[in-house]
Design a protein around this nucleic acid. Sequence first.
DNA 1: CAGGAGTA
DNA 2: TACTCCTGG
Length: 336
Amino acid sequence: MGVPIRPLLEGYRHPVGWEELKGVAAIDAHNALYQFISIIRQPDGTPLKDTEGRITSHLSGILFRTAHLLEKEISPVYIYDGSPPDLKQKTISERREVREAGQANWEDALRRGDTEAAYRAAMASSRIDHAIIGSSQRLLDALGIPWMQAPSEGEAQSAALIESGVATYSVSQDYDSLLFGASVLVRNLTVSGKRRIRGKQQTISPERIYLPELLDGLSMTREMLIDIAILVGTDFNDGIYGIGPKKAEKIVREGRFDEVLREKDPAFDPDPVREFFLSPPVTREYRPEWRPPDPEGVREMLIEEYGFSADRISGVLERIAPSRSSSGQKRLDQWF
DNA sequence: CAGGAGTA
DNA sequence: TACTCCTGG
């Protein structure tokens, strides 16, 4: 779910226009896939599937979003998670339980005929499995979009790519990459527009957070921000019961982090978690390469193999790899 | 989520 | 043009 420190970011989440987002976007692949798989569903929660029952929601999401980003002169590179640290095991098993409950609730809601509850439960049942990861990577290859597998957490790798100048910013809905030291985080990198959230219409548009501005504004170090996160809970440790972001901020500012842990959870050693955020396993070798899209490869995969509509695919391909016969449109692949 | 059709 | 609604696989 990511670290719940949103209240601390009030005033630092700046709306940003597409013009300012030109550059290299290091996209948290797991986060993006999860968004697609959980949201791209029919009203009763059924995901898009091909005739063999294989889920295709994520392929639709990647295809159309890629076209959109390239049109905005944004170069995406997808960062996949590698092996999770042992510290994450509890989070992983908790997520599995939530998914299984979601699956059961979905079936229940369908039997009751409660479509809205079915949709919500189906979202919670979403799972990024091997088939989804593999097919997403094949599609990215056909689209000429680079991807890499991080040694460990993708968000940590994204931060390293920014630090070394390979990426301009990190893209995720979660705030973890800030803890890993990503200097720029972009959320809602989607076609802006209105969405229904909890029944209400709300306008969603891209927003940008600068870590240095955040730390300066809060007068704190990244180490302090990490300690706050540890108190409220991260993917790598349980939080302290009854402590939210505001109390955690106060505790850390007053230098009572150790004291509070000694009192509330004496068995817990925060140092491995601190260490993981401050120097996670990452690679410094990777250099992404963007290639022109392979229209025939995309067609073969999506139309022949997964049953996408030829018309829809042709429309997208025309946007990202205009055919020579097309009239007067500017070529978007010219800067590859 | 994103695109497209339908509507005003 | 702007906005709502529906569908995609």
